[in-house]
Write a protein that binds this DNA or RNA. Structure first.
Length: 420
DNA sequence: CGTCTTTGACCAGCGC
DNA sequence: GCGCTGGTCAAAGACG
């Protein structure tokens, strides 16, 4: 069985009816500092469930109804489509520049077409389905992420899992996106589309310090509430309007929540602040452009920011404060990034690279996980063992599916680089 | 003395 | 209209 076969087998084993958990965890996460709003009807209509009642399935049924299986013929579709059928519109498996790569590869001799290229074709097919699904959802909701143009290959980039800099690329802060009055064009576009004047970007991370060093200079100008929420203003210039809020998580005092209310400084950014600024800008841009679904998702960020010193997967959650949506980047999920996420290439092995990452997942002291999955400390014996372990992990914790998607995506990216 | 933090007052928006 | 909440202001005090 080649790697694609393995992946197909793993994906087929995923319980299709498992719609909760995983990327929806954040929506019910009581750690969230912001509450569901009572205004912004356009966002309210699409907001995720928050009440216990909704957690018990009502909202999930509503979301399932958006993808009635009898209306979408995916029965014969390959496994990736099954994830889409679940509403996993945040699935992203393609890599930057894949379309160009595919065109080139089509001219090559047939014998040289690898499993990876086959996988890319399958992904392209599923992306087309994704376009149809998103359009379908848009028609039903009257909002949400704008439907993608099926004729525009650039728009076929799947949403939700997003490698901001491209996996494995040199860790260089991306240049700020094109701006309109200081806002990225995407931001402006989605603000206009969704009637959103502002989006906030928050970081959740464990820190004993009262402030996470981010390169800017801040001055405290207010404090409210219990637990206390501190308000800071950028003081690099007296006219800079950038502010942020800092508070401890009510449930876990070791978690510091930093919310950036503005990020359009009226002065040149200090070099130390540029990585963080780019992350904030990108995260906001991704949300406003629909790359991060309302339900949140997983993104992969390469960064030199003190907050995120290396490439790592980040669980994003979307909340809705009284004033605007907040994209929260949860940095508490991974105490240390797996080596694969900052080592671009893996030595060749008889075992697919997927497995070594599963081992990483397996070895993490994940406090949210329930019963222990079968131990694999001695390493895989065969691919059936791998499949069994993965199945157990998925059944044990639906969130593992999210992790798996990130791993698969990363593998594809690395494989593509290896071919280049 | 300048800078920064603390803290109560004040304001605006919203739901009831 | 009232109360609640989020956010900001500004006076007072602390600190180096």
């Amino acid at each position: 069985m080649d790697n694609w076969g393995l992946l197909s087998k793993l994906l087929q084993l995923m319980p299709l009816s498992s719609h909760g958990g995983g990327h929806k965890r954040s929506l019910n996460d009581s750690h969230h500092i912001n509450e569901i709003p009572n205004k912004r009807a356009c966002l309210e209509a699409a907001r995720p469930p928050s009440s216990t009642h909704e957690q018990n399935g009502a909202a999930e049924l509503r979301e399932l109804d958006l993808f009635p299986r009898e209306n979408i013929p995916l029965r014969e579709a390959p496994p990736v489509a099954n994830l889409l059928k679940e509403g996993r519109t945040d699935l992203q498996l393609s890599s930057t520049g894949s379309e160009q790569s595919m065109e080139e590869e089509n001219e090559m001799d047939g014998e040289k077409i690898s499993w990876f290229e086959e996988a890319q074709r399958k992904i392209a097919e599923q992306n087309k389905e994704l376009v149809a699904l998103r359009g379908f959802m848009h028609d039903i909701n009257g909002r949400g992420s704008p439907p993608l143009s099926g004729e525009d290959d650039d728009d076929l980039m799947p949403k939700g899992m997003h490698d901001i800099n491209g996996s494995g690329t040199p860790i260089v802060p991306p240049p700020p996106p094109p701006t309109i009055n200081g806002c990225s064009r995407d931001v402006v576009a989605r603000e206009e589309d969704a009637n959103v004047e502002e989006v906030r970007v928050a970081f959740r991370d464990r820190s004993e310090a009262s402030l996470i060093p981010d390169g800017w200079r801040w001055r405290k100008y207010g404090q409210k509430g219990k637990p206390p929420r501190s308000y800071y203003r950028c003081t690099i210039t007296s006219t800079c309007l950038v502010r942020k809020q800092v508070q401890r998580c009510a449930q876990d005092k070791s978690i510091l929540i930093t919310t950036y209310i503005e990020w359009n400084h009226d002065h040149p950014l200090p070099p130390a602040a540029m990585p963080t600024a780019s992350i904030i800008s990108e995260a906001a841009s991704m949300f406003l452009s629909g790359s991060i679904p309302i339900s949140g998702g997983l993104i992969i960020i390469n960064s030199t920011s003190p907050m995120m010193p290396r490439c790592r997967p980040i669980m994003t959650t979307i909340s809705f404060s009284a004033r605007c949506p907040t994209v929260t980047l949860d940095l508490t999920e991974y105490p240390d990034p797996p080596p694969q996420f900052h080592a671009p290439a893996q030595p060749q092995s008889a075992v697919p690279p997927l497995f070594s990452r599963l081992v990483y997942y397996e070895q993490q002291p994940h406090t949210e996980r329930g019963a222990m999955a079968p131990s694999c400390s001695e390493g895989p014996h065969n691919l059936d063992d791998v499949a069994r372990i993965v199945t157990d992990l998925i059944l044990d914790n639906p969130k593992f599916k999210i992790e798996l998607i990130a791993v698969i995506k990363s593998i594809f990216s690395e494989a593509q680089q290896g071919d280049a």
